[in-house]
């Protein structure tokens, strides 16, 4: 058994596509029309196109809104991505207009930072310490 897909619930799939592809730099892996305005929309790391897919899943289930809101209140990220150079990545994303809620900080085995995905989630990036 292996993990082939994981998800974030996004407020708007088109807006999420633009953020995750155009700002973060992920590549679209699947974009399938499911009807009713919903898509099976996944992105992958361009460095690892056969790796785990991230599903940009609609937030329309009634439990999702309160769940996402509660995580944001406490500053808890909905997903975590790994980067090689967190300082360079933060600089690049800020230049793209991405809003950070936690500047790079020491979190034990990793350095981490947190940004707002503009689709209702906080997202963590980590760099494993050398």
């Amino acid at each position: 058994m292996k993990i082939y897909v994981t998800n974030v619930f996004v407020d708007d799939q088109q807006k999420a596509l633009e953020f995750y592809r155009d700002r973060l730099g992920f590549a679209v892996k699947r974009d399938i029309d499911l009807g009713g305005g919903n898509r099976w929309l996944t992105v992958v790391s361009p460095d690892n196109p056969d790796g785990t897919e991230l599903l940009l899943e609609p937030s329309d289930h009634p439990a999702v809104g309160p769940f996402k809101a509660a995580l944001v209140v406490d500053g808890i990220p909905a997903a975590s991505f790994m980067v090689d150079d967190i300082a360079a990545e933060v600089a690049r994303l800020k230049a793209e207009g991405v809003q950070f809620t936690v500047e790079p900080m020491d979190a034990g085995a990793v350095m981490m930072a947190v940004f707002d995905d503009s689709c209702g989630n906080l997202i963590q990036i980590v760099q494993v310490k050398g």
Binding site: D74, V102, A107, G108, V114
Partner: peptide, 24 residues
């Protein structure tokens, strides 16, 4: 600091892990 940062900071300091519920 948010609740999340306070918990992450404790880990960084090598302090005993505090559950988010407890810190809250």
């Amino acid at each position: 600091q948010s609740l999340f940062e306070l918990c992450a900071g404790a880990v960084a300091k090598g302090q005993p892990v505090m559950s988010r519920q407890a810190v809250s």
